[in-house]
Write a protein that binds this DNA or RNA. Structure first.
Lengths: 159, 159
DNA sequence: CTTTATTTCCTCAGTACTAAGACTCACACT
DNA sequence: AGTGTGAGTCTTAGTACTGAGGAAATAAAG
C-alpha cells in the first residue's frame, strides 16, 4: 500500500498572493546573503579570522574603544560570545581590555597598536572583496536596494 | 608615549564612492537578514527545529523525495551536515532514508507520514511569520527588492 | 545604612554545524 | 574480468558559537 497517496510531488497550496511574494523575497534574500557571506568568510579565513572576529575589529577600528556591551550590540552576538571572541583576539595581541574609570563593572575593548596596523592593511582588501561581490548591481541599483533593505530590516527588527 | 597617536576615533578613509555604496548595502543586507532569521529561528524553536532542519523538511515537502546530494544543494550545508541533520530528523520519525534503485551509492531522503503531517500544519504558520516579518515593505516594493536581490545573489554566487 | 533590583561581564555546558578524509559503489577503458 | 577514476554518503575530530546562570559593582528604595 505504498501507492503514493501523495503522488503530486508539490503539495504546495499556493497560499495567497502576498504570502507568496513575501516567501520569494525571503528566499532570494537568504541566497544573496549566503553567497556574499561565503566570499567574505573565504577572504577572512586567509587571515585566520572569522566573520564575527573581523566584525569586532572593524567596530573598534571605526569607533575607537567600546564597552563590551556596545560591541555586542554592534556585532549581534550573545554576551558569552563577546567574552569568548575578545579573549581570542586578546590572546593574539590584536585587542586589549581596559578598565572603565567611571564604572568598575564595565570593561572597554580597544585595538592594540598591532590590531590597528592589521586593520589598516586588511580593511581596504575586505572592502574590495565586498565591492567585487556586489558588482551584480550598478551603483544606482545598490542605493535603491539599500533603501529597501533598510526599511525592511528596521521593521523586522522591532519585535 | 601612549599619547593617543590615533586620537581620531574614526580612522576611516572614506575610500571611493562606489566602495562606500557597496559597504552600506552590505551592512543593511546583513542586518535585514539577521533580523528576519532571528524571528524565523524563534518560531521554529517552539517546535524544536533549527532553521537548517526546517529547510530540509520544506524541501522534501515541496519537491518530494530527494537524493541527499540534491538536498545539500537546496539547503547549502556541508555533506557531513546533511548526514547529521537527516539522522536527527530520522530519529524523530519525520524523515526516512530510501535506497535508490538505479544507484546503490545514493540514498533518498523522504518525509514520513508523520513528517508530512507536521509540515502541513507547520508550513502555513511559518509562511505567516515570514510575511509578518516582511511587512516593512509593500507587496510592490517586495517584488522590486526580489528582482534586485536575485540579480545580486546570482552574480555573487558565481565565483 | 540596609535591602533589593539592575547592569555588566564572565563561566560553563551544550549545540549545530564544518572540513577533511574514509568508504562504498558505479562506470569507462583496457 | 580487472583497474583506475570519480561520485555519493558517512565518520571523526574539531570550531564557533548560544544560553542559562552567577559574581561584582552600581543604583534605587525603604
Amino acid at each position: 500500500m505504498k501507492a503514493r497517496t501523495v503522488s503530486s510531488p508539490a503539495a504546495t497550496p499556493p497560499s495567497d498572493a502576498p504570502t507568496a511574494t513575501a516567501l520569494k523575497l525571503f528566499v532570494v534574500l537568504n541566497r544573496a546573503h549566503q553567497a556574499i557571506a561565503r566570499r567574505e568568510a573565504q577572504h577572512l579565513a586567509a587571515h585566520e579570522l572569522t566573520i564575527a572576529e573581523f566584525a569586532i575589529l572593524e567596530a573598534l577600528y571605526h569607533k575607537g574603544p567600546l564597552l563590551l556591551g556596545e560591541v555586542q550590540k554592534k556585532v549581534l552576538v550573545s554576551s558569552g560570545g563577546i567574552t569568548f571572541l575578545v579573549d581570542k583576539l586578546t590572546a593574539r595581541g590584536l585587542v586589549e581590555r581596559q578598565a572603565c574609570p567611571s564604572d568598575r563593572r564595565a570593561r572597554y575593548a580597544a585595538l592594540t597598536a598591532e590590531g590597528t596596523r592589521l586593520m589598516r592593511r586588511l580593511f581596504p582588501a575586505h572592502a574590495a572583496v565586498i565591492r567585487e561581490a556586489l558588482t551584480g548591481l550598478s551603483s544606482v541599483e545598490q542605493k535603491h536596494a539599500t533603501a529597501l533593505l533598510k526599511q525592511l530590516g528596521k521593521a523586522a527588527a522591532t519585535p
